[in-house]
Computed example of a mutant assay.
Amino acid sequence: MNYLERNYAIVKLRMVEQMENSLKFGRTLIDSELDTGLLNFIVKPIVKTFYDHWSERDAKANTLKQIKITLDAGIKLVKDGASEELFEKIIFDNFPKFEKADQTYNQTNHAHKNYGKLRQAAKETFINYLTEVAKLLAVKEDVNDYGELCRVAFKSKEQAEKNLRNQLNITEKSIKIVESDISILRINFVGKFGKKIIVRALRKGFENTKKEFFEGLNETYDQY
């Protein structure tokens, strides 16, 4: 196994673990939100059914596609030389595939006035992911796990934190767009109450993920 194959496997494992944890925690949050409110017993079975179907089929399958698209694009970038021209070409060639697997594309109304902002955020996410993944994949030093890989790819905690904040800011922007007008969500069968529950869970899930990411960052760098 060469360093590219090794790094690919390490990063993929980490990304899949994060996906699995997020989906499991999302289900817990949905249950928590549904346990409060007088009218929630009406929408409870609908929202639960939607989330279970979405997480097990749509979200999981499409996130795995996005992981593969990003990692494969990162491999090409590292192998062929990370020039600005190549980077832009890879974005141009791969973003349409990444977008079609994104929840922004699949769960929102494309005719909504704010959809363009969400689409731009999805593109910024892909660019940010690809930038970070390429650095991780390019590590030639002897590493055994994701923490070691990060410490080599991003020499300082400050650099790693800056990259993390960039992505969190993009995600924050996307969530605020949805929160500002939940009619952008295409899941009309869950009703207005159902949409509100899902958006509240989305916000809480993001805040929890943000906390976990910073804790992980501290664990990766503070002990070394």
Rank of each mutant, 00 (worst) to 15 (best):
Y8A: 01
A9E: 14
A9M: 11
A9L: 13
A9D: 15
A9S: 15
V11G: 04
K12G: 01
K12A: 03
K12V: 00
L13P: 01
M15F: 07
M15R: 11
V16L: 14
V16M: 05
V16R: 06
V16Q: 08
E17G: 11
Q18K: 13
M19N: 02
M19G: 02
E20S: 06
E20A: 11
S22M: 13
S22N: 15
S22D: 13
L23Q: 06
F25V: 07
G26I: 04
G26Y: 04
R27K: 15
R27A: 15
L29E: 02
L29N: 02
D31L: 15
E33L: 15
E33H: 10
E33T: 12
E33Q: 14
L34K: 11
D35C: 12
D35T: 09
L38H: 12
L38I: 06
L38V: 10
N40E: 02
F41V: 07
F41I: 04
I42P: 11
V43G: 07
V43Y: 02
K44D: 04
P45E: 01
P45D: 03
I46A: 14
I46T: 02
V47K: 09
K48Q: 12
K48D: 07
K48P: 06
K48N: 08
T49S: 14
D52M: 07
D52C: 04
H53Y: 12
H53Q: 13
S55F: 09
S55T: 11
S55E: 06
E56R: 09
D58N: 15
K60E: 03
N62F: 01
T63H: 07
L64M: 10
Q66I: 00
I67H: 01
K68L: 01
I69W: 00
I69M: 00
T70A: 05
T70F: 02
T70C: 01
T70V: 02
L71V: 05
D72N: 12
G74Q: 05
I75C: 14
K76S: 14
K76P: 11
K76D: 14
L77V: 02
L77F: 05
V78Y: 03
V78I: 10
K79R: 14
G81M: 08
A82D: 11
S83A: 11
E84I: 14
E85Q: 09
L86R: 00
L86P: 00
F87T: 05
F87K: 07
E88C: 08
I90K: 00
I90V: 02
I91G: 03
F92P: 13
F92Q: 12
D93C: 05
F95Y: 08
P96W: 06
K97S: 09
F98Y: 07
E99H: 07
A101K: 12
D102Y: 00
D102L: 03
Q103A: 15
T104E: 08
Y105Q: 01
N106C: 10
Q107K: 10
T108H: 03
N109K: 12
N109V: 04
H110I: 04
A111E: 14
A111V: 06
H112D: 08
K113D: 12
K113C: 06
K113N: 08
G116D: 11
L118I: 04
R119E: 05
R119T: 03
Q120M: 13
K123N: 04
E124P: 02
T125F: 06
T125R: 04
N128L: 10
N128I: 08
N128A: 14
L130I: 03
L130E: 02
